[in-house]
Amino acid sequence: MHIVDGALSSAVVIGGAVLTVGGLALGVRSLTLEKLPAAGILSATFFVASLIHVPIGPSSVHLIMNGLAGLVLGWSAFPALFVGLLLQAVFFGFGGLTVLGVNTLNIALPAVLIGLVCQQGIRHANPRIAALWGALAGSGAIALTTLCVAVALLLSGQEFIPAAKLVFLSHIPIMVIEGLVCAAAVYLIRRVNPTVFASLEGHPA
């Protein structure tokens, strides 16, 4: 969900940039020598995941997977998703430059929050229950992201209120799909190699 340049008020743009710098500082702190390659490659993986289109009705949507990013990367989701958005803006013309802070905040803050809330759940002994937590993470992150986008629009002007409501309603099917995809991904990771979820924690597995 990329907001473009020129749509938001200066206060929102500056506020978003300041908060994103804070998030980046927190996220970068944990990127030590041991974790840098893993973080970089996982960041690339989430970039590729965002290029995947899944069918929805007669059309298709691209995945965001920020919930899963939060589960795997923790606070490092901030710099990882920022790098992705920067590359998308510069090389794909997607999003914008002055809104980079707001866009990063909208995607990465929900990722980090969801990661904190669901990190115990996805470690549940039963992979099926872990997958349910994965579904919650996938849907919850998109719901929060949509909410953040709506708030950014609302704070910028009264005339955006209908658009903000529409953004939220039109993303409900996407929340469902991201939940399903994220649940399946968590289930598979639990079955194949659960250390993925601990890859960026204090002691590398």
Partner: peptide, 24 residues
Amino acid sequence: TYRSMGYLIGMLLVRALERSERIL
């Protein structure tokens, strides 16, 4: 479809992590 896509992304992450260990 959605389950297969999820498995696909999960598998990508698993392989990415294994690759990152070899790279390090």
